[in-house]
């Protein structure tokens, strides 16, 4: 028989908090998205299809998705490394570095974009050295990736950091006493523990990058077919008062992002479960 006694809860009952959750999500997320779908549905299906499959739009999906993916991937690796350094080592100025990690959140993205372009332009501090070996950074997909890496970094660090902090070092010591080498300790003890958090950070950084506009338009060069991101095309449509066209592209991006995030979250949920059982 199930236990009939009510468990003590901090917040008032399930009904109230669930109701609040639903209303809140509706107001903040679902209703605006519903309006977006409504707007996109004002054009015929043929028009919708033509808009979202135009060569330039398709090129921009590809660009946005692959630059976002690479940026999030780079962040997943180096963000985890930064989190590791911040949790496991004590050094002078650690708190300052810790605070630095959040800067990409605080900085207006346009400022970030202009600053990055200044540095990575062919005559910029860093850009000139790349230029001298024949690599163009600003005004190429590479520049877009740098901007997206910049804005996505805090997501991974802040996802992994608390998990690492909670990870008891005794497990590693126990593994070592049982004869595990450092590589085994990392692969069998540390990695499984932080991997779900890294995945969460990756998903957040990736999602953020898909929608990023402010920083990218300055560094991308906005060349049709080459460096035009999806959000720019949406703005382009808005400038022509083509609201339905803008909404159509947004809907495609939204559905794609949702499916992708759902899959990543599902994967994350599975890995968490797998390691929890043992």
């Amino acid at each position: 028989m199930a236990d009939k006694r009510k468990r003590h809860r901090v917040l008032p009952g399930f009904g109230l908090s669930m109701g609040y959750t639903l209303i809140y999500l509706s107001l903040i997320i679902l209703i605006p998205i519903a309006v977006l779908f409504l707007k996109a549905s004002t054009i015929s299906l043929a028009e919708f299809w033509d808009t979202v499959t135009e060569a330039r739009v398709v090129a921009s999906y590809k660009l946005t998705i692959y630059t976002s993916f690479i940026a999030a991937f780079v962040n997943a690796i180096f963000g985890t490394l930064i989190a590791w350094v911040l949790v496991r080592y004590d050094f002078y100025g650690k708190r300052i570095i810790d605070a630095l990690v959040d800067l990409p959140f605080a900085l207006p993205t346009a400022v970030a974009g202009i600053a990055l372009t200044t540095i990575y332009a062919p005559n910029g501090w860093i850009g000139q050295y790349f230029e001298s070996i024949g690599i163009k950074v600003a005004y190429t997909p590479l520049g877009i990736m740098i901007a997206l890496t910049f804005i996505g970094l805090p997501f991974v660090v802040r996802s992994v950091q608390p998990v690492l902090q909670d990870l008891d070092q005794q497990y590693e010591e126990a593994a070592a006493t049982l004869g595990a080498n450092p590589l085994q300790i990392f692969a069998k003890i540390i990695f499984p523990a932080i991997f779900p958090a890294t995945l969460t950070g990756f998903a957040l950084a990736f999602a953020r990058a898909l929608g990023e506009y402010g920083s990218v338009v300055f560094i991308s060069g906005n060349m049709p077919m080459k460096t035009e991101i999806v959000p720019l095309l949406i703005i382009t449509k808005l400038e022509q008062f083509n609201y339905a066209g803008a909404a159509a592209i947004a809907v495609v991006m939204l559905v794609f992002s949702f499916v992708l995030l759902f899959l990543i979250n599902f994967w994350q949920w599975k890995t968490t479960k797998k390691y929890q059982v043992s």
Partner: peptide, 17 residues
Amino acid sequence: PVLDSGARGSTTTFVER
């Protein structure tokens, strides 16, 4: 080579970069 989103952006691209 670079299509900025606004005229001021273009001036920056030309003059500063």
